[in-house]
Structure formats: structure tokens, C-alpha cells
Design a protein around this nucleic acid. Structure first.
Length: 493
RNA sequence: GGGCGCAUAGCUCAGUCGGUAGAGCAGCUGGCUUUUAACCAGCGGGUCGUAGGUUCGAGUCCUACUGCGCUCACCA
């Protein structure tokens, strides 16, 4: 046990055992969801069908108010909260056991649905059953958990002790389910591809490395599922999507977690224009389903997710903000110097740094920024009418990148050449070797294909109005903490 | 990785000029049959994040470390 355990609660549990009552019984109770009781209870002036019915509810007890021969306490389950009323006269046999109850305990209560004199919906208990004793006391009753670290480390407390937290994660679940419904309605197939990759690719990011003992081989945790999903397009699956957990060994911030969820989808016979349509239609549809409106407020600004979204050209925006063409190397280098950017990297990274420094903040959105220079798009097809540019877009909202898509490069020779160039950079964020198997897949022929990636966590941030990715991840990444268990040797550091 | 900030009771927070460690909630005891953060009376509860330093004396000042938050950079 840890120092969280309250001695008086432990003493109660021991007293219960001594009296033959199990503080941690093996069986639960068959309970009615609280929300379904409240939904059919009406009010004291106009009682609904539930009033007068005997029900059983189960959940966590909070804030008991003890009047000596009468106790009121709210009881919460996953669907809602309702008051229970415990009267001595209705619980004569059980009544002495009330002293074993504490705020935070998990209990089952059976009784008649009714109201109090003040009109509060109440289950008047005729039977009370402790389902699990809380040996640790719940957080302070009206502030809840406010210490941010404690909230993230002990999400299992935060979920019921902090207002709105459960609702956020219920909504996250609905968003993911809405994504699936939207895509399945369009004939998409949900697939699962490997998380352990022998070569990392599909994005530029530092990977996590792990080792398989039996194969005696290193693997990378995937930074993107992209190259496997496109192999499935070669295989004829034609419309596939995956909601993939990706891993990137990079910084942690309010917009970044080392493991995050990305929706990637690929559609044969489509191109990036179709990906724009599907993006805006999907976002509008999800917003309507989970929020009932296309209006969202993110970081204090209201946006409308109603399709169609605006389109803005990368190179045109670059020209407007910097007074030079994106491929005018002397002019762009001069501009980078003015902006005080790090010039040690290659030209194209520098050019993109100039773009991000001068243009990205203008992309409040929702807006598609389209047609990126080819050298920063190693997996995208060139535009037929301008081979300097790739058919790629990024979707922005509130200056934050929500999605990335392109018309997929399906020319194996071109792809091999771009892989070779990537490997030659020796960049730790670029693959260390050419993915020959992927090139071979393309050699069998991949139809014209559009692909799209959308950051699920960021989408949830937008649709729930949360500023930090940690507020939409149940267990955000934190530095590991050493907890000491009683009786365990504490080793010197 | 850089900058700024925070760390005191189970929880939320005070702590003045460096001079005996405080409150509310939670807990315990007693009272109370209609509360909504119930109320009334009483009681218990602390390695002030860790380690050094300055000082007669440190929760308070200084240094380092640890953890967390915000922010900048990178990334989605």
C-alpha cells in the first residue's frame, strides 16, 4: 500500500471484514444507467414514468450530507449523476453500516425514484451495497483536482473529480466513431498495418528504435503508416484507411505527444482535389454529428467547418509575403538572413523555414494551402502543368496543421530517385536506406491515388475547444515517476 | 535544448521584515429526518520537493538538483 491510503478508511475495511462484510465483493449489481432514469423522471410538478419505480443504480458516491437519521449523497455513473436518499427508517438493518461509507466509495443502491421536498430527483434507498471501498480519499470537493500534473498522472481520478473531463473523452470516442462511419459509407475498408517497421518512412521524423530478440534485428516504431497503406492500393484494396498510433522521438508540447493518432486514407482513381473534398466534407459531417453545429471555437477564435474551405497557393503566398519566388535561391537566402534563420541546412529546408516564419501564421483557416515545391514532398506526384510543384496540400486551422495530403507518387523510377536523394542527406529524420520493397511494389503498378492524413488528436482539440493536446489524450506522455510501495526497498539513487 | 514560472496537511491555498507551521475542505467524536459546497460543537493531522550554503536562527535569502506548467525552436 502507498501513503495515499487513509488509516481510518483502512480501519473501516478491517471492521467490515471482521463483521463478515467483504469490502471488495466479487460481484457487481445489475444497474440502470442514471441518465435513463433522469430522462424519464420529469420534475416534482410533472412526474415522469420513472417516478415511483424501483430501480438499482451503481456508481461512485460523493459528498454525503448526514442529518443523523437521513443522509443525502450524489451518486455518479458513466452516464450522469443522481441523488440518493438514505433514511434510517427504510434501512433499519443496514443503518449501522452507514459509518463504514465514505465519499468516493463505489456502491449499489436500490430504491424508489422520487423527489425531495425541494424537488430534487432522488432514489430513496431500500437497499445499499458496498461494491468497492475507496481507501484513498477523493480530491477536495469543490475545487476537484487542479494540479495539472496530478490530473494527467491520475487521470483515473480526474475523470470523475474534474468537471467536463469525462465529457471530453466521450466526445473523442464519438469523433473517432463518426470518422469510421463517414469513411465506411464511402466504401472504405479499415485495415491494420505493422507498427514495427524495418525501415522508417512516410514522414520526416526521428524514430524510436527497438529490438526483436528472436530475429536479432532492430525495428523502428512507425512514424507513419503511409508506405504500407499504399502497398494495399497496389494490392487492389482501392479504398483503405487506418487510424494509426504513430511514434515520433521528438519534443513534447501543447500540440505534440510522442505517440499520437493519425487517420490516413488512400483512394485509387482519386487525386489531391478529391482529398480536399473528402477532408472538408468529413470535417463538416463530424462537427454536425458530435457538436450539432459546424461552428467551433479554438484558442478564443470562432471558425466555421462548413464546406467548402478556402484554397491558397503555397508559392503565391510565399511570393506575397517575401517579395521573391520560392526557387530564387539568392533572394530567398537573403530573406532568410533578414529573418535570422539557421542557414546550416539545405536550401529547401531553408525555403520552407522562410515560409513557416512568414506565412503559416496567416493560415487561420480552415484553409487548404496547396501546391508545394517538389523537393519538400518526396512522396507526392508532380503537377502535370508545372513540374517544379507537387500536388500536395496541408489543411490548417488556427495556424495549426490538421492534415496533409497529396496525389501519390506512383512512378517507381521517380520514387527511387527521391528516396536516394533523401538517404543522401544523412538527415537523422530521413530514412537510412532506400525502401526497396516499396519501390518494387510500385514496379507492379499503383493506380493514380489520392492520400490524406489527419491528426486525430488535433481534430479532437478543435472540436472540443481544448488548447492542449494533453487535454484530449487520456494518458499524455510524462516523465516516468518512481512510486514507492510500502515494504518495497527504496534503492539509493 | 533555451527562457520564464511553480513545488507548504489527503485536496485547495495563505504564510508580512528571516524569529514557535496556518485556514477551508476531507478525516475522527458528538448532535441533527429534506440537504444541494448542509449546519453546529470539539479533536487529530506537516521531513514546508531534495541536497548544500549564508545566519544566533531559514517555509522565507543564495546555489545546485528533481518534477511539473507555460513559452521559443523542431515536428503532425
Amino acid at each position: 500500500m502507498t501513503d495515499l491510503v487513509q488509516p481510518d478508511r483502512l480501519a473501516k475495511a478491517q471492521a467490515m471484514r471482521a463483521a463478515g462484510v467483504d469490502p471488495f465483493p466479487a460481484r457487481g449489481v445489475e444497474a440502470t444507467p442514471i441518465a435513463s432514469i433522469a430522462a424519464h423522471a420529469g420534475d416534482s410538478a410533472n412526474p415522469g414514468a420513472m417516478v415511483g419505480q424501483r430501480v438499482t443504480i451503481a456508481g461512485r458516491l460523493a459528498m454525503p450530507r448526514d442529518f443523523g437519521k437521513l443522509i443525502f449523497a450524489p451518486l455518479s455513473d458513466r452516464t450522469g449523476r443522481i441523488q440518493v436518499g438514505l433514511k434510517r427508517d427504510a434501512l433499519s438493518e443496514w443503518w449501522p453500516q452507514r459509518k463504514w461509507l465514505d465519499a468516493g466509495d463505489l456502491v449499489g443502491v436500490s430504491g424508489e425514484v422520487g423527489f425531495t421536498q425541494k424537488g430534487e430527483l432522488t432514489v430513496w434507498a431500500s437497499e445499499v451495497q458496498l461494491l468497492a471501498k475507496a481507501l484513498a480519499s477523493p480530491p477536495e470537493k469543490w475545487h476537484g483536482l487542479v494540479d495539472v500534473e496530478a490530473r494527467y498522472r491520475r487521470r483515473y481520478v480526474d475523470l470523475w473529480a474534474t468537471e467536463g473531463v469525462l465529457e471530453t473523452f466521450v466526445k473523442r470516442s464519438k469523433i473517432v466513431s463518426s470518422v469510421r462511419r463517414f469513411l465506411e459509407a464511402q466504401g472504405y475498408l479499415e485495415v491494420e498495418t505493422p507498427t514495427l517497421h524495418p525501415i522508417f518512412g512516410g514522414a520526416t521524423a526521428r524514430p524510436f528504435v527497438t529490438h526483436h530478440n528472436a530475429l536479432d534485428a532492430d525495428f523502428y516504431l512507425r512514424i507513419a503508416p503511409e508506405l504500407y497503406l499504399k502497398r494495399l492500393i497496389v494490392g487492389g484494396m482501392e479504398r483503405v484507411f487506418e487510424i494509426a498510433r504513430n511514434f515520433r522521438n521528438e519534443g513534447i508540447s501543447t500540440r505534440h505527444n510522442p505517440e499520437f493518432s493519425m487517420l490516413e486514407l488512400y483512394e485509387a482513381q482519386a487525386d489531391y482535389r478529391r482529398m480536399m473534398e473528402i477532408s472538408e466534407q468529413m470535417l463538416e459531417s463530424i462537427a454536425r454529428e458530435v457538436n450539432g453545429t459546424t461552428k467551433v471555437t479554438f484558442r478564443g477564435v470562432e471558425y466555421d467547418l462548413k464546406a467548402p474551405f478556402a484554397r491558397v497557393s503555397y508559392t503565391q503566398l510565399f511570393r506575397e509575403q517575401n517579395g521573391c519566388e520560392f526557387d530564387d535561391q539568392p533572394a530567398v537566402r537573403k530573406r532568410a538572413k533578414e529573418l535570422g534563420l539557421d542557414e546550416s541546412a539545405g536550401y529547401w529546408k531553408l525555403m520552407n523555414d522562410v515560409f513557416e516564419a512568414t506565412c503559416e501564421k496567416l493560415l487561420t483557416g480552415p484553409v487548404f494551402c496547396v501546391d508545394y515545391p517538389v523537393p519538400i514532398c518526396p512522396l507526392a506526384k508532380k503537377k502535370p502543368e508545372d513540374p517544379r510543384l507537387a500536388e500536395r496540400f496541408e489543411l490548417f486551422l488556427g495556424g495549426m496543421e490538421l492534415g496533409n495530403a497529396f496525389t501519390e507518387l506512383n512512378d517507381p523510377q521517380d520514387q527511387e530517385q527521391r528516396f536516394v536523394e533523401q538517404v543522401a542527406t544523412k538527415d537523422p529524420e530521413a530514412p537510412g536506406e532506400v525502401d526497396v520493397d516499396y519501390v518494387q511494389a510500385l514496379e507492379y503498378g499503383m493506380p493514380p491515388t489520392g492520400g490524406l492524413g489527419i491528426g486525430i488528436d488535433r481534430l479532437v482539440m478543435v472540436l472540443t475547444g481544448k488548447d492542449s493536446i494533453r487535454d484530449v489524450l487520456l494518458f499524455p506522455a510524462l516523465r516516468p515517476q518512481r512510486n514507492v510501495v510500502e515494504g518495497e526497498a527504496t534503492e539509493p539513487a
